[in-house]
Amino acid sequence: MKIAIHGRNFPESARPYIQSMFDELAKRQVEVIISAGYREFLDNASVAHYSQITYTIEEGVLEADFIFSLGGDGTLLDAVTHVGPRQIPIVGINIGRLGFLATVAPNSVRLMIDALYNGQFSIDERTLVGVRSTPDIFGNLPFGLNDFTITRTQTSSMITVHSYLDGEFLNSYWADGIIISTPSGSTGYSLSCGGPVLLPQTNNFIITPISPHNLNVRPMIVMDSCQLAFEVESRSGNFLAALDSRSFTVDTSARISVQKETFVARLVKLSDDNFLNTLRSKLNWGWDIRN
């Protein structure tokens, strides 16, 4: 078995679990490849990882049976870009905070490795949002798992986002911006702006305005088979375009289209991993002294 590993810095309390993971992989003689930046961090943190093979963020993971993401949901979003169209299954180990996507607890890592060896897991295929633009904004990584956003820059006033659905005019959003969210991203930025929660396998996108000045507009759900297009007006002549955690300042002359990406992110789910349980535990849904 060959496993790629990517992560970020971790609290001291997580060190024993991470060391235990590498010890278990070494005992099973697993071939391990580590992202270059994370290997440097592990070396400085004195974690024995035994791997001599690294990959760079630019080249990504070329070949592996799984990629382990050690961190929070942001780290897993990074791992999605490292895998891209190769669709290597991603195991999210939650050493972060909330963890909607990274659901494996640090103290369950050995059990997780056993499950991978014994085939006791399933693959959850998640839709990605794809962005195409003129001029090109996101280079070789024009896709994201959570959302694509258009927002005003910090120094600009409200912007106007002219939006089109399959070539037909939809609306002009006078707002701080607009979010195009996948079902996976429905529990993120979109939710904080009043958007609905979607089950992961729902074949939809959510269009969520950010602080709209036209108060009668509300979040809207559309089929993910449609194509969205956007033109932006701003007094500053520019705006911010963000795809998950990657953001760029863009001139208002840019033309942007958004659609479902042609490939998916494949997340590993263990037997006790259930989205509804995650909602209740992470968002305290149903928390009531009467229950």
Rank of each mutant, 00 (worst) to 15 (best):
A26D: 00
L77Y: 04
K269M: 00
E168C: 10
R8T: 01
G195E: 13
W285P: 06
Q19D: 02
V268L: 02
I179E: 04
G130M: 10
I221C: 10
R39T: 03
R235V: 13
S69C: 04
L141C: 09
D176S: 08
F169S: 15
S234R: 11
F248A: 14
D251S: 15
D224R: 06
N140I: 05
F239K: 01
L116R: 02
L76T: 03
H213R: 14
R255D: 14
T54Q: 11
R266T: 00
I113T: 02
F169T: 13
G286A: 03
G286V: 00
D224W: 06
I179Q: 03
T278A: 09
I137T: 12
I256T: 03
D176P: 08
S184F: 05
G144V: 06
F230Q: 02
G144L: 04
D78I: 04
D147S: 08
G194K: 11
L198P: 01
D124H: 02
E12N: 11
R132W: 09
L267A: 02
G119I: 08
H49C: 02
T182I: 02
G96E: 05
V32T: 11
I221T: 14
F263E: 07
A265W: 06
E59H: 14
I3F: 04
V131N: 08
T278H: 02
S172E: 13
L25C: 13
L101W: 05
D73C: 07
N203M: 11
H162F: 12
G74F: 04
A254R: 12
A229L: 09
A4W: 00
I18F: 00
E125A: 08
S13V: 10
S108W: 10
I221G: 07
A254W: 14
S247P: 05
R8I: 00
L270Q: 01
V32Q: 03
D244H: 06
D136R: 07
W174K: 15
N140E: 09
M1Y: 02
N171L: 07
L101Q: 09
N291I: 13
F275G: 01
V264Y: 04
P11Q: 09
V83G: 01
M21D: 03
T127C: 09
R8S: 05
Y189F: 14
M223W: 07
Q259R: 15
I93V: 11
G60C: 03
E24A: 01
P142M: 11
R110G: 00
I113E: 01
R8Y: 00
M112W: 02
M1I: 01
L128C: 15
A265S: 15
S69A: 10
T202C: 10
F169V: 11
I90C: 03
L240K: 06
D224V: 06
L283P: 12
I5E: 00
D244S: 09
L111D: 04
S133N: 10
D136S: 12
I57T: 06
P209C: 11
P200Q: 13
R246I: 08
N94W: 00
T249P: 03
